[in-house]
Nucleic acid binder design. Sequence first.
DNA 1: TAAAACTATAAAGCTACTATAAGGTCAATA
DNA 2: TATTGACCTTATAGTAGCTTTATAGTTTTA
Lengths: 135, 135
Amino acid sequence: MRIGQLAQLVGVETQTIRFYEQQGLLPPPDRQDNGYRVYTEKYGEGLAFIRRCRILGLSLAEIHELQSYQDDPHQPCTAVNALLDDHISHVRSQITALQALEKQLVSLRASCNDDREVEACGVLAGISEGNMHQQ
Amino acid sequence: MRIGQLAQLVGVETQTIRFYEQQGLLPPPDRQDNGYRVYTEKYGEGLAFIRRCRILGLSLAEIHELQSYQDDPHQPCTAVNALLDDHISHVRSQITALQALEKQLVSLRASCNDDREVEACGVLAGISEGNMHQQ
DNA sequence: TAAAACTATAAAGCTACTATAAGGTCAATA
DNA sequence: TATTGACCTTATAGTAGCTTTATAGTTTTA
Ligand SMILES: [Zn+2]
Ligand SMILES: [Zn+2]
Ligand SMILES: [Zn+2]
Ligand SMILES: [Zn+2]
């Protein structure tokens, strides 16, 4: 299987596969005589794992960490679970921050009812004067 | 006023001010004979405007757009309000996505009660097998 | 046989800065 | 006077996770 087929199979771009390889998240595959990469189907599982981690918002560094745990399967999984707990709390604090931001934006938006000139726009005035009641 | 004082006044780093200038978000200030940048207090208002926009999560491109409206103060403010509406919907969709993600992560986390070996870790198994019931 | 499609590497671009390097300017001090 | 220290200058690289571009070689297809 060549890189294009693997890419299609997993649903990534070929460059992304090369990028992961370069970053050390995927092992260098065998090469044909012409230099083309050759992959087994099993290789695709590793790639799919990375993609699912990315969909879960894990960073490449976190994925790398998970892989290192997989390489040592008889250790207790405390670190794996802790990594996920950390990530969950990252996500939660992002949500909190964005919710506060949304509130601010909505109240700013409420300060203008279209149909004004830019000069008198409540939104621009609100930002300019800094009446951004924080939090 | 030199760049260090302006930076302290507004609460930014000097490099950030130079960066905004380079990006065309701030006009090039006058220079002393020795090449040092000289600022008026009024200049600080423009900088503070940018900072407040950034706190509201606006991109530099969006800020640039707002500035172009400010330069034409007798137009209707429809575009300003539309920009903010767009931004609010960006923020909302980010929140929605993160909330869905959190749910997934929490359910993944629940599939493992520490005290296992990595080999049997519910979290790793969950990611590997792709039982990530996408919402 | 010649074009289309695929592969390779290397390098730049994206966002919004931050950090580093190497050097010039200025006031105060030893 | 020499030097320290704080400030300023520009240019360049680094951050994350790819994507895009450039250039070139290979395979497949028409
Ligand atoms: Zn994380
Ligand atoms: Zn308005
Ligand atoms: Zn936006
Ligand atoms: Zn576990």
